[in-house]
Design a binder for these strands. Structure first.
Length: 568
RNA sequence: UGGGGCGUAGCCAAGCGGUAAGGCAUCGGGUUUUGAUCCCGUGAUUCGCAGGUUCGAAUCCUGCCGCCCCAGCCA
């Protein structure tokens, strides 16, 4: 299956509760917002999007979709020193991949720099803002702390004319960075630190990726964000919990400025996943330390990594829906994410066979040149997926783990002297083994029962189970990477102090000598498939070549057996 | 010691004065040519703790405890 296949069935997933969806439904019922809901996804282009952002994307776009409103993509680009075009591109690609389209053109906070500048002027003229020439160190001292009220800056009571002139000097490049900043005149004794005369504009002699050298002063997040929301007619400005105590400031600006609309900020709890990390700093360390291959390594929690791992956009959306949206800060089990993709792939991924750790099985009552083409379904309960054809030959490969010389009855695979069914083919009975000089079994001999295609043996002795296989003469070689979670502990670094000490040493196992059924060698990159009895896999987005197949394991099949009994 | 939040089953999460939804996980049982899927069944005398109001509280009041965020001219 490809992404489009799963997008086709974009049913409203059920499960998690979303307090914002309910709140908006109530508002609309009361006749608010004129029935129109406008949201936005406002990333700063300073890094790659990760699974946590997916929750915000699904929330903002999902709400607009649900209420027939609009959602836009707006880059919050007020800090040119940390932002890059590369991120602007990757963020757009990731949002699209997730399955969302923003209304109209991509927006940038920098689109509104002129208006924002005028708003700043307005604040100065109204006596609500002043240019502070305290250094940032001095400003920190004046700010006080949680237990000490701040002290007014000596520049706080400058005249409007004075401020206007100083602000113009800032804009014209008359100040070096840190020498002056425009601040809102609110309350230096406020319990909420955000209200202790917050910065509105600061000096940055840096070129901006969108506006070039047009400006050497840039608005702060607090000043730019709400006003941009107002300019765009955003009705619900949704952000995460840590911005909660910025809300009074958000409202203060809206109330003191001649903005065209009055957006309202709402906060929700961030997504935390156990066994993973999402901090930009730590993710970068994984790359720098060479532990992963880059931002899109299949083990990374970035959307590009998750995509390369083989997760479907639909499964990420379903996951976000399952997790729900609330105001509490919880930690979601990674198993829920894995389960979401299993759900999707179980329904949509075609089945195939792959032997990852091969052992030769010789069917001695089959002539060497015999090739029987067996039909196999593409999916056990979906006949709309195309069937496949499996060449059945004298020599096939089975998994080493699927054969034992002796085992108890719980072992439902091939045992010397016993029977097992080859998936989609015949029942075989193991008769002999061939050993190498070290005594290791390198070949198993068996006889097959030609009357067991679709039937049990006539003598009533049923096979113990079903194992997968690939023709040794007609199968194709493949490279398979078995990925697992990157960390071995639920909260990396919590106990050890350094998250790098909690790595899962087996997060990647490369299987170079795999055998896949012939039809599988020609699949396209990003095609997903279930290797029966093993798990879900995807043809690598970049490394897979027709004729030189490379598969990534998305997630193994659920396995209730391995944790119960080893069958010995 | 200040300000803002959050505490309901292992994990998410409803409930908002009338006697504890749902999902994931777990554990039983059934079906099965994937030890998968699917299908049934399975858990809180109790809602952080302690008091109080009430015929009746997870829901209201008081006090306490725990966890998260805030002292960037970052977002």
């Amino acid at each position: 299956m490809t992404d489009n296949a799963s997008d086709a069935s974009r049913a409203e997933p059920r499960g998690g509760h979303n307090f914002l969806r309910q709140l908006i439904a109530d508002q609309i019922a009361r006749g608010e917002h004129h029935g129109e809901v406008v949201t936005r996804f406002p990333p700063e282009p300073n890094g790659y999007l990760h699974i946590g952002h997916a929750k915000s994307i699904c929330l903002n776009f999902g709400l607009a979709e649900h209420f027939g409103g609009k959602c836009r993509l707006r880059f919050d680009d007020t800090n040119p020193e940390k932002e890059e075009q590369e991120y602007i591109d990757s963020i757009q690609a990731d949002v699209h991949w997730l399955g969302f389209d923003w209304e109209g053109a991509v927006r940038f906070t920098s689109d509104y720099f002129d208006t924002l500048y005028d708003y700043a002027l307005h604040l100065i003229e109204q006596g609500h803002a002043y240019v502070d020439e305290l250094s940032s160190e001095q400003a920190r001292e004046y700010r006080g702390d949680w237990n000490t009220p701040g002290t007014d800056s000596p520049y706080r009571e400058r005249s409007v004319e004075d401020n206007l002139a100083a602000f113009e000097k800032m804009r014209a490049g008359g100040f070096a960075e840190g020498e002056a900043a425009l601040r809102a005149k609110i309350d230096m004794a406020a319990g909420n630190m955000n209200l202790r005369d917050p910065i509105i504009y600061r000096v940055r002699h840096a070129a901006h990726h969108q506006t070039g050298d047009a400006w050497c002063i840039y608005p702060s997040y607090d000043f730019a964000h709400g006003q941009s929301d107002a300019i765009e007619g955003v009705t619900h400005s949704i952000c995460t919990l840590e911005f909660e105590d910025h809300r009074p400031l958000y409202n203060w600006f809206i109330e003191h400025l001649p903005v065209p609309a009055r957006p309202v900020q709402y906060e929700f709890g961030r997504l935390h996943l156990n066994y993973t990390i999402t901090s930009k700093r730590r993710l970068r360390r994984l790359i720098d330390a060479g532990i992963v291959d880059g931002w899109d390594d299949p083990r990374m929690p970035t959307l590009s990594g998750i995509r390369r791992r083989g997760y479907t956009p639909a499964s990420i959306r379903a996951f976000c829906e399952t997790v729900g949206v609330s105001r509490s800060d919880g930690v979601v089990d990674t198993a829920v994410l894995e389960n979401a993709v299993r759900d999707d792939l179980n329904h949509n991924a075609p089945r195939a066979m792959c032997v990852m750790d091969p052992l030769k099985l010789v069917i001695t009552n089959l002539p060497e040149e015999a090739v029987e083409m067996l039909a196999a379904p593409g999916h056990p309960n979906r006949d709309d997926l195309p069937a496949r054809t499996l060449p059945f030959t004298r020599e096939v490969f089975i998994e080493k783990a699927d054969f034992r010389e002796s085992a108890n009855k719980k072992y439902k695979r091939l045992v010397l002297g016993k029977r097992v069914r080859l998936r989609n083919a015949y029942v075989v009975e193991a008769t002999d083994v061939v050993r190498d000089d070290a005594g290791e079994v390198i070949e198993v001999h068996c006889r097959y029962d030609p009357d067991t295609l679709g039937d049990n043996p006539a003598d009533g002795v049923k096979p113990r189970g079903v194992i997968h296989w690939v023709s040794a003469s007609h199968g194709r070689r493949a490279l398979v990477r078995a990925y697992d979670r990157l960390f071995a502990t639920p909260n990396p670094g919590r106990e050890t102090g350094d998250f790098l000490d909690d790595l899962n040493p087996a997060s990647l196992e490369v299987h170079a000598g795999c055998w896949i059924e012939p039809g599988l060698a020609e699949v396209e990159a990003e095609q997903r498939v279930q290797f029966e009895r093993i798990g879900y896999f995807v043809a690598d987005r970049f490394d897979h070549l027709p004729g030189a197949p490379v598969f990534n394991r998305v997630v193994p099949l659920r396995d209730s057996w391995s944790k119960i009994d080893d069958g010995r």
